[in-house]
Write a protein that binds this DNA or RNA. Structure first.
Length: 431
RNA sequence: GGCCCUAUCGUCUAGCCUGGUCUAGGACACCACGCUUUCAAUGUGGGAACACGGGUUCGAAUCCCGUUGGGGCCA
């Protein structure tokens, strides 16, 4: 049990957590948990110039939302500045480092090759002469990434370092540093980078890929984002696409992670989000969609539930709700020509709408429900060559939209009075 | 520019380690058809890839070498 697996997620608080960071955190978490190990959070805040206020809070909050609970931390590097300084001086004493203009540099051995094994990529060899003596402690007393992350990983007893592959070329530095300290090397797994549409590294500057934006502005559900991100660089041998966190803990295999970079393709996220939306109950969806509906004014929750139930099968993300359901909250506005189905002329359209109004007026309030309305209208529509001649103008008069759910379910929610007045408004426009 | 990583449909990928069962499987997207007043959802079907060139082998997506492309790090 001494060899308990310990992983960590060690972001710099320089911006909102984006999908790449989330994936790194997730893989670290999955690997630790599936092995009964522990997952730690460390904040690498020694680069003072790039710090962004609120970033640390955002990182912690985002991990919490996804249920990636860390067992220790957050540990802040800025709280341990003395430690790095001592370690740097220790290296000077050992003759492995030297002062250089106020900074401390590590003496990189220039001969030979560094060989190491990466869990994902296998053996990697790098000529040591490609490396230079590098700064481990800056003249302002702050450590560089090279020193700080390594000292912390050692102190935190990290057994597996799982991080982006941009660090591969610096591995000789880290291995030499471990040797100089006389420390055992952790195991390494370098993940492929996440790429943009144009194949460039996904940078933190791309705010549209920030997890917070995906969740709060676009209206993706956290289950969908997590599931999608998990599959960016890893896939099981089976055809399964939909995974919960628990299933991921079971199925994930670090050694099966892809070696090549993956492009973030939002279309698949859209589909996956739809899948998760359809799994929710309307009641759950009302709560989830509430932040997106505020602008539409308050409605009582059973009213909202009905509306959401209608949109549930066609919704891709919650942010689409306002535009898709605006006609429930106000009279629709639209171009008269939209009322016409195929080749209908003004007169036919008018007759169609008048007939619909008549049919509605004849229905009792208590019978004004979807099933009944559907029966009445479909029965009457038989007299038309094409039932669209009756149903299309009706639906457009109700919604003002080219595309919407069916008219009967909409009328049930709207009620008799509002339905009829919308037909009359449409008839007015045709005069 | 040097070094490192990498290469299967447009995208995410299975297969590669242990060569034949691969006329390369799945998912998203796309197209067609069914259902249908519309849009979805759903069902069925379709097009779509082993980067290229050399080896090794009876046989290569799978192994080796090179080229090219992409990415990263350093400068």
């Amino acid at each position: 049990m001494n060899s308990k697996i310990r992983t960590r997620f060690a972001p710099s608080p320089t911006g909102l957590l984006h999908v790449g960071g989330l994936r790194t955190a997730l893989y670290n978490y999955l690997f630790a948990k599936q092995n009964g190990g522990q997952f730690m959070l460390r904040i690498e805040d020694t680069d003072r110039a790039r710090l962004l206020e609120g970033a640390e809070k955002n990182i912690i909050e985002t991990l919490r939302i996804f249920g990636l609970d860390f067992d220790e931390g957050p540990i802040r590097q800025s709280d341990h500045l003395e430690k790095y300084k001592e370690r740097a001086e220790e290296l000077i004493q050992k003759g492995a480092a030297y002062e250089d203009g106020g900074a401390i540099r590590f003496k990189m051995p220039k001969d030979g090759v560094t060989k190491f094994t990466d869990i994902i990529r296998g053996e990697i060899q790098i000529e040591n002469e490609t490396q230079e003596d590098f700064v481990i402690l800056k003249s302002d007393g702050f450590p560089t990434y090279n020193l700080a992350h390594l000292v912390d990983d050692h102190d935190m007893a990290i057994t597996h370092v799982i991080r982006g592959d941009e660090f591969i070329s610096s591995m000789p530095k880290y291995i030499a540093l471990h040797k100089a300290f006389g420390w055992e090397l952790p195991q390494y797994a370098h993940l492929p980078l996440l790429l943009n549409k144009d194949r460039a590294k996904l940078s933190k500057r791309e705010s549209d890929k920030a997890v917070k934006v995906l969740l709060e502005e676009d209206g993706y559900l956290e289950e969908a984002v997590l599931n999608f991100v998990a599959l960016l660089g890893w896939h099981p041998k089976t055809d399964q696409e939909i995974f919960s966190l628990e299933e991921l803990i079971k199925e994930f295999k670090l050694e099966d992670v892809q070696k090549a970079g993956a492009i973030f393709d939002i279309q698949k996220l859209d589909w996956m989000n739809g899948e998760y939306i359809r799994k929710k109950t309307p009641k759950e969806l009302v709560e989830l969609a509430a932040p997106f509906l505020e602008k539409e004014g308050e409605g009582d929750s059973s009213f909202l539930e009905k509306i959401i139930a209608l949109e549930q099968p066609r919704l891709k993300k919650l942010s689409e709700m306002p535009e898709r359901t605006d006609y429930f909250f106000r009279e629709p506005e639209y171009d008269v020509s939209l009322l016409k189905w195929k080749n209908m002329d003004d007169n036919q359209t008018k007759n169609s709408l008048e007939l619909s109004a008549e049919l509605l007026k004849a229905v009792n309030d208590k019978d004004f429900n979807k099933e009944n309305l559907e029966k009445i209208f479909l029965d009457r529509a038989k007299k038309f060559q094409d039932r669209g001649e009756l149903l299309w103008p009706l639906r457009v008069a109700l919604t003002g939209k080219k595309a919407s759910p069916g008219p009967f379910e909409i009328m049930e929610i709207l009620g008799k009075e509002s339905s009829i007045s919308r037909l009359e408004a449409a008839l007015d426009m045709l005069k």
